[in-house]
Every structure is written in structure tokens, then in C-alpha cells.
Amino acid sequence: MLCDVCGKNQATVHLTEIVDEQMTELHLCEGCAKQKSMQMEQQFGLSDLLAGLADFGKHTGEIEPLKLKCPNCNLTYEDFKKIGRLGCSSCYSTFIRYLLPLLKRIHGTTVHTGKVPKGAAVGVSAADSSFRKTAETTSSPKNDMLELKTKLQEAVRLENFEEAAKLRDKLKELENKPSGVSKNKAPARESSRRKKEQG
């Protein structure tokens, strides 16, 4: 079987993707699969979120996003796995998908209920404002999504599928809304991926 993307190499990786409620099979060569998986990480979409709920290894050929890189400090997911420390506060938004299950394992939950700093909103440095926007402002669509995703994850874990379906619909609604934050971030992703291709 040839790769669905490049049509040149032998497909060795077989992915199942859920797009618009439709299961799609993808047969990829190793190179295209790596690329695809990176793209999925970066989009942080519903499909890969659901895929990510199961153990990564269980999915046939799905590749861990070792090359996923924090745009602020350049720490890769591979670095994180090696050192066990994150590189900067922005790493949390970069690796959020992999951090949530980890935090859950460590603390039994992923939701902060403690102190909120008084000065939280003032004097945010430009470098990190995107994450602060995504994670701090409750009214921001990105943050609602993050919260919904956490809830969805929890619902799926508890096999509460009715609740999960509702949450997924809400998420879809939000995803279809144009969000300033994610649009702004898109070009940065593009370029980092392109760099990767050249290297």
C-alpha cells in the first residue's frame, strides 16, 4: 500500500482520524506520519484529543510528538521527557495535551482551586501573553475550549458518554467560531514546521 499523502513511499503507519464525526483511515509512510502527527499536536483539535485519551502506544503507529517545541524557549517534548522539567511558563500551553494526563496522575486532578494572584492581569510580558490569554481569561474562547476539553476527557474516562457527546458538540461550536488567538498563532506553527522540513 502506498502512502496516502505523498503517494510514493510504502505506507507503514495506519492512523484513524475523526473529522466531522467521520472516521477516516489514513495510510502513511513514516516521514509523512511524523509530519501529520506534528500537525495534529499543533492544531490541538478534537480528533487528536480523543485519540490521545487512549495510551499513545496503543494506537497503531501513532508517533509521540517528541519534536514538538515550545515557541518561547525551544524546549522540545523530548527534552521534557528527558529532564522532567519544563523550560518556561509557555511550555504549559505548548505541551498541555500531554501535561494534563500527567498532572492528573500526580495530583489526582487538573483544576487549580487555590490562590489567584492579585496582580495577575497587570504587566504581562509580551512573550508569554498568548498563554496568559488562553489560560487565564475565562471569557476567552480558547480557555473555554481548554476547560471543555478537560471536562470531556474526564467524561470519557468515566465512560459518561452522554455528557461527552454534549461537551464535544459545544467544543465543535467553539472550534468553528473564529478565534483571534488561534489565528494569530497559526503562522508561527507553519513556519516552525517548515523549518523542520528543511532540517
Binding site: S89, H112, A120, G123, A135, L146, E147
Partner: peptide, 19 residues
């Protein structure tokens, strides 16, 4: 924290080097 904007997320709380 009046002087510094400490790294904080409403969802995850204070962000630290180690999870």
C-alpha cells in the same frame, strides 16, 4: 506579586518547572 506578574494560569494555577 504586586511587582512581578508571576506565571499563573486560572486553570492550572502557578506554573512551575516541575509538574
Amino acid at each position: 506579586s504586586n511587582n512581578f506578574p508571576f506565571a499563573f494560569s486560572k486553570e492550572l494555577g502557578y506554573l512551575t518547572a516541575c509538574p
